[in-house]
Design a protein around this nucleic acid. Structure first.
Lengths: 144, 144
DNA sequence: CGAATCTATCTGCTTAAACGGATATAAGAA
DNA sequence: TTCTTATATCCGTTTAAGCAGATAGATTCG
């Protein structure tokens, strides 16, 4: 799996770079990624799968959710590249924007909390939801 | 042109990595690259063109030949990546092998010398050619 | 000029992988 | 079990780019 070209293939899509940079800040579930990236689920899942198959990230199931995170420890050259990315890309505009949005998304805690709590918050109290509704592009029907 | 994903696309083929690593040792013409890589001319040219269009290398004409070399100075992120490649890949088996073969190829000086000299050497004295014929896969008809 | 050589590009074909939408699967809640 | 949610995967389509072989352009030599 020391195929360097394969590492670069994995890094050669902006979407995957964005996902990787987000994961350098901690693990995230697919729905959080969808919310941050504002991309359809199949697209996010596809790219996450690619990164997983390339040996860059791993996933673990947490209830209904899959949480993805950087594989640690990474093998030699892959590790060097990820360090490189952290160092060189974290200052770029798009990376900063994504991290900022990630914090907003996580503040809403739609995914991280136990399912029961989440479910009730989302449908029951519209107050907290309204406060953080900015950027929600109809991903979740308000009340139905 | 600070599209990071595009940099990684350029690096995501083994053939292009090999070319780049060779060029870290100095400029080379296409026919030398063909000899080292043992690949057809259209393939070498195609990958060289890709690297050129991605802003990693440049070419200059020297008589009949095109010599390619790493673009200097490279822009920020590209430069960092090339430095990274030099540091991390130069010890790999395939990279060492290619450099070694490059030195053999250049020792024959089929390309670097002025065309007239080259032409006469190649067709006139078969002695020098025979000494370095190893690895020549019918690329050049011996006498026709 | 014509011949030879080096390189770039075109041709037709093939493959990898992108995409969005639909569907299947897995797990918790009711 | 049935419903809902989260995620993975399948579908048909599209695009980028791989390939080898053929051809065209550039340059130098005679």
């Amino acid at each position: 799996m020391e195929d360097i070209a394969q590492i670069y293939k994995a890094l050669s899509e902006q979407m995957r770079l964005r996902i990787l940079m987000l994961l350098t800040h901690g693990e995230l579930c697919v729905c959080d990624l969808m919310a941050v990236l504002e991309e359809p689920q199949s697209k996010v899942s596809r790219h996450v799968a690619y990164l997983k198959n390339s040996g860059l990230i791993k996933g673990r199931r947490v209830g209904t959710w899959m949480h993805y995170f950087l594989k640690e420890p990474l093998e030699g050259l892959v590790a060097a590249h990820v360090e490189f990315l952290k160092r060189e890309l974290s200052g770029l505009d798009w990376a900063r924007d994504d991290v900022e949005k990630m914090k907003e998304v996580q503040a809403k805690k739609l995914c991280e909390a136990p399912p029961s709590v989440t479910r009730k918050r989302a449908s029951g109290t519209t107050g907290t939801a309204a406060a953080g509704m900015a950027g929600n592009k109809g991903k979740r029907k308000a009340n139905s």
